[in-house]
Write a protein that binds this DNA or RNA. Structure first.
Lengths: 270, 270
DNA sequence: ATGCTACTCTGGTCGGACCACACCCGAGGA
DNA sequence: TCCTCGGGTGTGGTCCGACCAGAGTAGCAT
């Protein structure tokens, strides 16, 4: 196809990059593209789909951020764009940016986190022996050293919570947890200075972590759930983040709509 | 800045587009960029940050897919890239693609859905008068016509479930619900042919929807939660989707790792 | 005053040009 | 014969310049 420099639409509708995205999605759905496979090169796909390489790149960038592919330059079997399907990164980016753009109120994030973690803890406790808590335990040990900076401590803390979700074996919930954590990471760090006695707080957190794990290992779902709820709300209360309470900024001031997914009915809600 | 055609690194590290992404994120965090604001033009930002316009575009594409901006060509106040922060679309794209790429097992998606919906129903029931269920009710009415195609019916059904989440007022959970729904939409439609008597099933679903709403309006959290759980699991059982049971393909066959977010400890889990 | 036309700015695409990188293979030396 | 080293080749990463379509806007002509 020899499209003169400025001939985008050609036969198809606008959004050349979306063409690429849809092509990849279709290939994934019909199984012609599987995790571990290599996508055609950018130039190849460009000519195959009749779009410019720039458009292919834009689509690839999206896929990369969404955690679907991993690109690597050079040559050999490890080069090129490879399907990896690692949702964590994408979920984190999405939630982090949405929180930054005020699409996700911090309160809602905390609430969602509470919900997920409580459920995870209860589920783990209900079937302890089906899960592997070694990772979580190892993280608790790593959190023991008294000289840990708040930053380091909180990173491990976050990893501990994600490890619990991971132990439950649910990829979706794990990804969500990772995303939520990453979304409010900034606020958590911001809250550290508001804590009077960090050493004491750290000790309390360590203790609570152990208690949670014990409740899980004991198979006491209700206790595990209650403890993790207290653990989370307690920390937010102390670090001066607004304790979960009703609030939500206007969904979006943008005066247009008409997405495919937009609801049909009017929305006088709120 | 006059970078000769092929001079990408210049003074900064690789990933020019990421520079743009970070710039925007920072601007959002420090408040210099707010929902409704217009971003600088691509050419402008390009020269400002010392990167090529292509890189700016790649970043913009990511932001667009993530639901952070809305671009529009032309002139005037409505043109350009505008911060909108509508997480639904991005969440849907992410989950849909992850399911397609087998990063999210369908089972896990259903389980997550179950968890979120049950919580939403319970929360709504616990504080009925604080929420507005008009949208949900309206959708139920729209679902009444007996001549509805399964496709149409299921679209409304999905909207009903999302409307419940929306009524709870939690943006994060609403976005997640919308994403999860969109992720398994294909599978749901695929399951329709496996239903022997669609008319009867539709009637049952209508009835269950009403019952759920009644339980919520009655303020009976436990009942609302139980009913919505049965509602969901029941449908999946009937449409022949594998009933939620233990399963999870290998997280990712990709032989590399080393992300910032990767855990420190070994992971012999599953 | 009114109406129409140019202008200008914006995103959307394309194509071509480089760079850095990593593999692969063949030539040449030990 | 085996090992080493240097080019060849292909990949993503980036930049640039060009052009198109759309949408306001200013200004000229009537």
């Amino acid at each position: 196809m020899t499209t003169t420099p400025g001939t985008p639409p050609e036969t198809e509708s606008p959004r050349a990059w979306k063409t690429v995205l849809e092509h990849v999605e279709r290939a994934l759905l019909d199984g012609s593209l599987q995790p571990g496979d290599r996508l055609p090169g950018e130039r190849q796909l460009s000519t195959d789909l009749g779009v410019g390489r720039s458009s292919v790149r834009e689509a690839f960038r999206v896929l990369e951020v969404l955690g679907l592919i991993r690109t690597r330059s050079g040559s050999g079997p490890n080069a090129g764009a490879i399907i990896v399907a690692t949702p964590r990164g994408g979920m984190s980016a999405l939630m982090r940016l949405q929180v930054a753009a005020q699409g996700f109120p911090v309160d809602d994030v905390v609430r969602a986190r509470l919900l997920l973690e409580a459920s995870v803890a209860a589920e783990l406790a209900a079937a302890v022996h089906d899960h592997d808590l070694a990772d979580a335990l190892q993280l608790l040990d790593a959190m023991e050293p008294p000289g840990l900076d708040p930053d380091e401590f909180l990173v491990l803390d976050a990893q501990f919570h994600v490890a619990l979700a991971e132990a439950s074996g649910n990829q979706v919930i794990t990804a969500m947890m990772a995303g939520l954590r990453s979304a409010i990471e900034g606020y958590v760090l911001e809250g550290v200075p508001h804590i009077r006695d960090w050493g004491a707080t750290a000790d309390r957190l360590r203790h609570e972590h152990r208690e949670i794990l014990h409740a899980i290992e004991r198979g006491d779902s209700a206790d595990a759930e209650a403890r993790i709820r207290d653990h989370i709300t307690g920390y937010y209360a102390e670090s001066l983040l607004p304790t979960p309470a009703q609030n939500s900024p206007a969904p979006t001031p943008d005066p247009d709509s008409g997405r495919e997914s937009s609801r049909t009915v009017a929305s006088p809600t709120r």
